[in-house]
Design a protein around this nucleic acid. Structure first.
Lengths: 343, 343
DNA sequence: GACCTTAGTGTAAACGCTTACATTTTAAAT
DNA sequence: ATTTAAAATGTAAGCGTTTACACTAAGGTC
């Protein structure tokens, strides 16, 4: 515990325990390969010295880090929190450590973080969504780092993914809304550039409109950052046009909560005056008044399965296999029924 | 770009550029110490090979990582998000990378993460709050890793902190509430064990009560995890007692939002039937109805200053200096005035 | 008792970088 | 042209581990 010059090394332990460094190393990594008596001696030495293995040295020698990196677009809101939590729990169980970085939805920042994490020896990487410069995938392939994408399922993408079909999910929400009688539909979306989730959700709405005789071109989604204030401002702006939409579909729950705020500012009642929907079903969705009708995403399941698959890829050096998760529409009280839905 | 055997190393670059490894290393670390022509040659080699320095090797040789670790209690809600975001931005500007782990409010988990981060060569560590096993500070001292605490200011603690006075902040909020005429006060707190922020906020309320002739012993705060559902359940339970409190002080905004939900379930109007306050002033506080009266914490400022101080400690190898940040009471609409406050 | 396993341990060579020091080249000063 | 200093580059010794391989000692087998 004294503040001596430098942290103790394997050598120090070996000397104290009167064994070779190899034996100490074995004590740590495969204890059953060393005699109980020696092991005891070594363990004592480790304790009294307060020895912690140097990770970098370990990595250099063994080429493994038992670290998984994840880069998420933001920590500012809870969109990724629950999924990531489950991801990390599952990793921990399997003896891996999770390192998280956030890219603030910036492509260059993400690329930098990827390189950082790889250089740091991440055994595998979890990325959100498929949209990014293909060069990055080249780099990752060259470095032999397995990658798994979450929050977006795609069978055609270059890397495996555990996620849901954003387009189909949004489409069924929109179709349900149309079935409830909504025709004047507006949309507040996240920024779709470099973000397949946002892009596909817009497409999903258009699919639904086209399938039910509404002109998809008239949707004209407004795109903005995923935060409450943007959502509120966009909503207020949307309501100044006429005719007013009867329904505002939002790209996610955060934006939808913003829209709710906007309605509140305008003195509009939800859902009586206007209906609003979200996407993700984060905790927030049930916390606002009225509770948000939204698309439920199985975040924990996604995180857990992603961890299992990624570790599998790392340990068995195999290609990952994609999995599509089901989403469900949560009908709560932010949407009004405009006409009998049984027609 | 081809998927060759192994990632390129410094040696490969040196060979291709027909220089020594030392020169390549210098090109990367102090470009001005090498002739422009050579540098150009080396840079081309780096590009064509797609070389990325191996971080572990670098760390071993240089003993620096330009990495700062932060361990926060949770990512599940946005309590730490904004501050951490500012922290990371400031670090990035200074050439450091931030690695984040979450301890899920578990002491052992935190300890493990600390060791992991240190073993990984974090040049410095940001921790939340002061309460933890003193041995950890011994370990950190032995390993010569600078530590800074945030979210809680203390002048007596063993390590420096950039934060606010949780006790005083909560005390002034409580005093303000008492001035508004509230006497039947209840409190929903976070779990105070191993959490000085929670503990001090309780103390703050008791201070205020004692100073105004109310018996602090009657506060009997209920302690539970910081999540909306717990808050709601606790609130419902609290309201079943009589006499009902006129004010429920909550340990943070998340719990307060929970209380709001609880009131909603019970059909109670806030603030007419009962007043509720939070702490932190996260985005959520302004997003719920009614907007939450709460204590505003300068999260971004805290994050920024913490980064500056911690980097200073790392680079100048000096003791850190603590700083107390001011909090302000945000009076919004979740509190009612029971009597003329000018008395 | 000689021979073979096997369990336990030690020796030493990587791993990919940085950097002190040595050496060579270049330019400036005479 | 020669000398001298400064700039550019090279050489090689670590950094703290892991692990292939070599070795020793202790039982088992006949």
């Amino acid at each position: 515990m004294t503040d001596t010059a430098a942290p103790p090394t394997l050598d120090d332990v070996a000397r104290l325990a009167r064994v070779s460094t190899a034996t100490v190393s074995r004590c740590i990594n495969s204890p059953d390969r060393v005699a109980a008596s020696t092991r005891a001696r070594v363990e004592t030495a480790i304790k009294t010295l307060g020895y912690t293995p140097n990770f970098a040295a370990r990595f250099m020698a063994a080429k493994r880090t038992f670290t998984i990196g994840a880069i998420i677009p933001t920590m500012e809101n809870a969109i990724f929190a629950r999924g990531l939590q489950a991801f990390q729990e599952e990793l921990h169980q399997r003896g891996y450590t999770l390192l998280v970085s956030s890219s603030a939805y910036k492509a260059e920042a993400e690329e930098e973080q990827i390189r950082t994490l790889v250089a740091r020896g991440a055994d595998g990487l979890l990325l959100i969504g498929h949209d990014r410069d293909p060069q990055i995938y080249d780099y990752l392939a060259q470095q032999h780092v397995p990658v798994l994408v979450a929050w977006s399922y795609s069978e055609t993408a270059r890397v495996p993914s555990i996620g849901f079909d954003n387009r189909a999910a949004m489409r069924s929400l929109a179709e349900r809304m149309i079935a409830l009688g909504h025709k004047r539909i507006a949309m507040i979306s996240g920024i779709s550039e470099q973000n397949d989730r946002a892009r596909l959700r817009i497409e999903g709405v258009k699919d639904a409109m086209a399938a039910h005789g509404l002109d998809p071109e008239r949707l004209a989604p407004v795109e903005l950052p995923y935060d409450v204030h943007s959502g509120a401002a966009a909503f207020v702006d949307l309501m100044s046009h006429s005719p007013r939409p009867s329904l505002v579909l939002c790209g996610n729950d955060v934006l939808a909560v913003g829209a709710l705020r906007g309605a509140h500012q305008l003195g509009l009642k939800v859902p009586e005056d206007v209906s609003i929907t979200g996407f993700d079903d984060i905790e927030l969705a049930q916390v606002v008044t009225p509770e948000l009708t939204t698309v439920h995403v199985p975040h924990r399941e996604m995180g857990r399965k992603a961890a299992q698959e990624l570790v599998g890829m790392v340990e068995e050096k195999r290609q990952g296999v994609s999995e599509k998760l089901e989403t469900t529409i949560m009908e709560r009280s932010s949407v009004s029924i405009l006409r009998d839905q049984s027609e």
